[in-house]
């Protein structure tokens, strides 16, 4: 009887042990917070339409700007050399909101939370997509906020702010986000 029980557990345990090979093709990963956020910035840019005057021509680069202290470290490096909609991607660091005009996408660093209103105001008028991981960014007038939930990065969207800047976010992207302001 004891032996039989033992073999029963052995079978269960072996099953447990063989589990990784059951789904070798599966893909969940673990990565650094800003590595993920960097990749999300790049991905988000692919799902947004800018008004023509802002979109620029194929010859001008697509510019992702970071205002404030850069929290990404080397995490943005893999983005370099990629292109968005056939345009070369460049990343530039800016320190004053007035410099935002040349950017398509602006990432607002945590360090700028006290200047948020001024930054958002200028960026909105210049048709720049604003993204940040400042708490309640989207609810406070930003366009896309990165929030952490259950160990994963989620997105919150303020559609009102997006529309006020004449930008359009594809429904494909909206499906993956939580809308905190404005209606679809």
């Amino acid at each position: 009887m004891r032996q039989r029980t033992f073999w029963r557990y052995l079978v269960i345990l072996s099953l447990l042990g063989s589990m990784p090979s059951l789904a070798a093709a599966a893909q969940e990963r673990v990565a650094g917070e800003y590595q993920v956020k960097a990749a999300m910035l790049y991905n988000v840019a692919k799902f947004v339409d800018w008004p023509d005057e802002k979109a620029g021509s194929d010859q001008t680069p697509f510019k992702i700007c970071i205002i404030g202290r850069n929290p990404f470290g080397t995490a943005l490096d893999p983005l370099l050399g990629n292109s968005i909609r056939g345009r070369k991607l460049v990343i530039s660091q800016i320190s004053r909101p007035e410099e935002v005009g040349a950017c398509q996408l602006l990432f607002v660093s945590y360090s700028e939370r006290r200047n948020l209103a001024a930054i958002l105001d200028t960026a909105g008028r210049r048709r720049v997509l604003t993204v940040s991981d400042i708490d309640r960014f989207a609810a406070s007038g930003g366009m896309i906020g990165f929030v952490e939930s259950e160990g994963r990065i989620r997105m919150e969207v303020n559609l009102e702010a997006v529309r006020n800047a004449d930008l359009r976010i594809s429904s494909q992207l909206l499906k993956l986000t939580r809308i905190v302001k404005g209606r679809e």
Partner: peptide
């Protein structure tokens, strides 16, 4: 590849940030 830029957004949302 550890280059996350090639990972579709749906999957990025499932990546665990282990802190």
């Amino acid at each position: 590849t550890t280059d996350l830029t090639q990972v579709p957004l749906e999957e990025l949302l499932e990546i665990k940030v282990e802190n």
